[in-house]
């Protein structure tokens, strides 16, 4: 219930209106997060919002969160300068099942800011690359300017054992890669559907489209994982805001296998 006080060490622009904050705790380390988990970040006097951890869980020294300024609290967070205090509660929730993916062909399907919660999983997969089959990162953004972690994409493209495919919905003249929705890249990826696991993160509509693409490609519903978003106030299953039918997103998720929540996805105003 009570946040630990951390401080902004560095702040970096990672897209339009998108900033990655590197936090360091005043009172000893904030507990490390598993890939896909999130923290509740407080701007004192403004409010608190859930933000997924976007850094490498193996890098104990850096606590990274990537924030897009969309509301009063996220705008205040994105605007914090180095040295500013930030309240941290967490980490919370059940993240990506990275530990259970050994030997699998892996597809990371991200849309927009949804790449941020997937990045810790990508770091872990790359760190332990030999334990997994094929590894593909499929990323869709609105336009070339909106691509998150642009500089890092350069190094990901050079990684052996990682296939990176990026597409945009709206292209500019300078763009020479794919144009079209992110789902069009799924059939082009190399994987064996019978032993593939897909981690999907992005706007809910995009995830629903992606799931259709993955199912058409033969990926098992129990091997498709989605990170869900709903209003959250407490992050610990006490405030009731993140109700999603039979589950609570903060306590039972935010990452769910599709076979668990598929029947509720797309249900109007659930």
């Amino acid at each position: 219930m009570v946040p630990i006080v951390a401080r902004v060490r560095r702040r970096r622009r990672d897209g339009p209106g998108v900033w990655t904050l590197d936090l360091r705790s005043d009172e000893g380390a904030v507990r490390p997060a598993a890939p896909g988990q999130f923290n509740m970040l407080t701007v004192f006097g403004v409010g608190e919002v859930p933000i997924s951890v976007s850094g490498d869980p193996g890098d104990g020294d850096r606590l990274l969160h990537t924030v897009r300024a969309v509301g009063p609290v996220s705008a205040a967070l994105a605007d914090l300068r180095p040295g500013s205090a930030v309240g941290v509660r967490g980490p919370f929730g059940i993240g990506w099942p990275v530990g259970a993916m050994a030997g699998r062909d892996i597809l990371l399907v991200a849309g927009g800011l949804g790449l941020a919660p997937l990045r810790p999983a990508l770091y872990r997969l790359l760190a332990d690359r030999d334990r997994f089959g094929t590894l593909t990162l499929i990323y869709g953004a609105r336009s070339p300017d909106d691509i998150l972690f642009r500089r890092e994409f350069q190094s990901w493209r050079r990684k052996p054992g990682l296939d990176v495919q990026v597409t945009v919905d709206h292209a500019t003249d300078a763009w020479d890669a794919h144009v079209g929705v992110v789902t069009t890249l799924i059939p082009r990826a190399t994987f064996d559907p019978s032993r593939a696991t897909a981690l999907v993160c992005g706007p809910e509509v995009m995830m629903r489209f992606a799931v259709n693409g993955l199912r058409n490609a033969g990926v098992d519903e129990a091997a498709i994982f989605l990170s869900m978003e709903r209003n959250m106030k407490c992050a610990v299953g006490l405030c009731g805001h993140c109700q999603f039918g039979t589950v609570m997103i903060c306590r039972d998720g935010p990452v769910f296998s599709y076979d668990r929540i598929g029947a509720m996805l797309g249900r109007k105003e659930l």
Partner: peptide, 19 residues
């Protein structure tokens, strides 16, 4: 049908405004 559905998704501009 795939192109129609992809077009729908593009029209919805699901990633949110960048400006």
């Amino acid at each position: 049908v795939d192109r129609l559905q992809a077009t729908r998704m593009q029209i919805m501009d699901v990633y949110g405004a960048s400006d």
